[in-house]
């Protein structure tokens, strides 16, 4: 917006996490709950993710095993990403054997917190053409917040992500996201969230995220690779910087700079989708393209 308004030509965008300084993550998270109605309930606020996962599984035809498949896919993908911290070979049985911490959410369904910093440089079209040979164009942006009351949300779907992606698609002139978008980097702070967000972004038909995942559509070699970088499950959860991390990975892929985790097929248009994590219902989406 700063560039589109004409106020400035170039902007550096920085976002970082230094979460290792924090010893009491769950206590700080509890401070994000409404002080009168929700905070007195106590406990680690991740119980909200457990409740949401159960409702999502009931509404969506996805299974716990599909969520485990997301974990396996992303952590395997991360093995090829040099800046990832949690790349490893796992099986769905490993996930199933991990302790059920916030039923049905298991230990391995939750991304691990990491430190890191992301920087992107944005420029106006005129400036970009002057200083850069292969710019990536931002063709659509969108963001949205659902109600802050956890009691009032539709728990079976990510309404904020639906609205945010719709806004971005409209700006980018995308009518059929599942065929118009070549690949996506999608928030996966919890395994089920990736599936929920894929459906919200209309990258598959409603209720088909699990089925598509099983068919390999979202694998790095698939028709619509999702989180080739490894996502938050594979790279680690950069907390508030995780959204810019998703956007940066899209830019790297489009420029062909992703190194060992570069998608083999030619990619021209990617989607990054972020979520602000528990207990919020806030998300952002950005569509980026090359070769325009």
């Amino acid at each position: 917006m700063q560039i589109m308004s004409g106020a400035v030509d170039t902007v550096a965008v920085e976002s970082h996490s230094k979460i290792s300084d924090l010893l009491t993550y769950s206590d700080v998270l509890a401070f994000a709950l409404d002080p009168i109605y929700n905070r007195p309930i106590g406990g680690h606020p991740h119980y909200l993710a457990g409740m949401e996962m159960r409702r999502f599984l009931r509404d969506s035809k996805c299974t716990e095993k599909d969520c485990a498949r997301v974990v396996v896919k992303n952590r395997t993908n991360a093995l090829k990403n040099v800046s990832s911290a949690y790349g490893t070979k796992l099986t769905t049985d490993d996930v199933k054997r991990s302790p059920e911490v916030f039923s049905p959410l298991r230990q391995l369904d939750i991304s691990n917190l990491v430190d890191g910093s992301i920087v992107m440089v944005l420029a106006s079209a005129k400036k970009a053409k002057e200083i850069c040979d292969n710019p990536v164009w931002i063709t659509g942006i969108g963001w949205n917040s659902d109600t802050p009351w956890i009691e009032n949300r539709d728990w079976g779907r990510a309404e904020y992500a639906e609205s945010a992606t719709q806004m971005a698609y409209k700006m980018a002139g995308i009518k059929h996201p599942s065929s118009d978008i070549d690949f996506a980097e999608i928030d996966d702070k919890f395994s089920y969230k990736e599936l929920e967000h894929i459906q919200a972004a209309k990258l598959c038909r409603k209720g088909e995220a699990g089925k598509r995942l099983r068919k390999g559509t979202f694998d790095s070699e698939g028709r619509l690779p999702v989180n080739v970088s490894g996502g938050s499950l594979g790279c680690g959860n950069l907390v508030e910087a995780a959204g810019l991390h998703r956007a940066m990975e899209v830019a790297l892929q489009l420029r062909g700079h992703a190194g060992r985790h570069q998608i083999r097929k030619v990619v021209k248009r990617g989607l990054a989708l972020s979520w602000r994590s528990i207990p919020t219902a806030t998300g952002g989406a950005v569509v980026m393209e090359v070769g325009r």
Binding site: G142, W143, N144, S145, D146, T147, P148, T282
Partner: peptide, 16 residues
């Protein structure tokens, strides 16, 4: 900002 968003009229809108 998340807690204040409905008081501020930001619910179900692009809010920052």
């Amino acid at each position: 900002g998340e807690n204040l968003l409905d008081g501020a009229g930001g619910a179900k809108k692009p809010y920052m």
